[in-house]
């Protein structure tokens, strides 16, 4: 019998599969389709201090093997998430959930995290310092080691639950940022958020996205994600949650071999709403194929070629 369970920052997951924030709402849309309790957990829609509409439309575009989004953190604000969304989430999902938080100042992050930390169902706080679609916040905190560390320290000071910092790939040296977060007290690192991208409509000679640029995701970015997960996982001691273009059980195993303790699945949920359920169902068969009995044993297990 294959063992799929993993331990993420002290909390046991039945399996490592986690729908990524922004692709799974607050869970209940998907609960109409399948029992979402089959998931390891899920990361709910990025939540900010105040309600946000986000960016103007069009804010979605297709690319080869992927998509660009510039949603811009639409959410009803932390108070309404706690009063209206979490009660609905609780009815369909009975495991600890990952609360995804974004902000526009260090104080914003601390404020929102402190409130969500008190919610019984929240198991982890995933702090997004990497949203490419907002100005004066989001990614600007994740592109310098000092700023990422400052957010980490501020959040850790007001929370009790594991804090996972979600990093941006749009940086020169992601390892230095991950290390700064670890030194500032982060309990885990998740990566990668979307890659900043742009497309132009040749007929209209305009960007396809109203906000000019957006976050590129989907299977096209998987190799970049595996590389960054490998680099970060081998540089820090805290657990790493890998994501970026994951769409199959094989991808989950590849991410784990690169160093991920758990794996988030994003854009794939938008194409196939059953993607995460299917991946979980496929995992035992794929593990058998690659002679893996226990998923925990393959974390970071990639063996490098010997140097000639």
């Amino acid at each position: 019998m294959e063992q799929l369970n993993v331990n993420l920052c002290g909390i046991e997951l039945d399996n490592p599969v986690i729908p990524a924030s922004g692709t799974f709402g607050y869970g209940y849309e998907f609960a109409e389709l399948y029992d979402v309790n089959c998931l390891g957990t899920f990361s709910f829609k990025g939540t900010t201090k105040d309600a946000r509409f986000g960016n103007p439309t069009p804010r979605i575009a297709e690319c080869t093997a992927g998509m660009i989004n510039a949603v811009g953190l639409q959410n009803p604000g932390v108070d309404r998430v706690i009063s209206h969304e979490l009660p609905k989430l609780k009815q369909c999902f009975h495991k600890p959930v990952m609360a995804n938080v974004s902000g526009f100042s260090v104080e914003d992050y601390a404020y929102t995290c402190e409130k969500l930390d008190k919610e019984e169902q929240v198991g982890w706080l995933e702090v997004n310092v990497s949203c490419p679609n907002v100005h004066g916040g989001g990614m600007s905190f994740g592109t310098s080691p000092e700023a990422a560390a400052e957010v980490t320290r501020a959040v850790k000071a007001v929370t009790t639950k594991p804090v996972i910092i979600k990093l941006s790939p749009n940086v020169t040296d992601i390892v230095s940022i991950a290390k700064a977060c670890e030194a500032a007290g982060a309990d885990g690192i998740s990566l990668i958020n979307t890659m900043l991208g742009m497309r132009i409509d040749l007929n209209r000679r305009r960007p396809v996205i109203a906000n000019t640029m957006g976050g590129f995701s989907g299977s096209a970015i998987f190799p970049v994600a595996v590389r960054m997960v490998y680099q970060v996982a081998h540089a820090v001691k805290i657990p790493v949650v890998g994501m970026g273009g994951v769409s199959s059980a094989e991808d989950v195993i590849e991410m784990m071999m690169a160093g991920a303790t758990a794996v988030e699945v994003g854009a794939a949920n938008l194409v196939n709403p059953y993607a995460c359920r299917d991946i979980i169902n496929d995992l035992p068969g794929v593990m058998e194929k690659y002679r893996i009995n226990n998923l925990k044993e393959i974390i970071g297990g990639v063996q490098l070629w010997e140097k000639m």
Binding site: T23, G25, T57, L270
Partner: peptide, 9 residues
């Protein structure tokens, strides 16, 4: 994006 309410696109 999705057509079923998940992505807010």
């Amino acid at each position: 994006g999705c057509g079923f309410g998940a992505c807010m696109g």
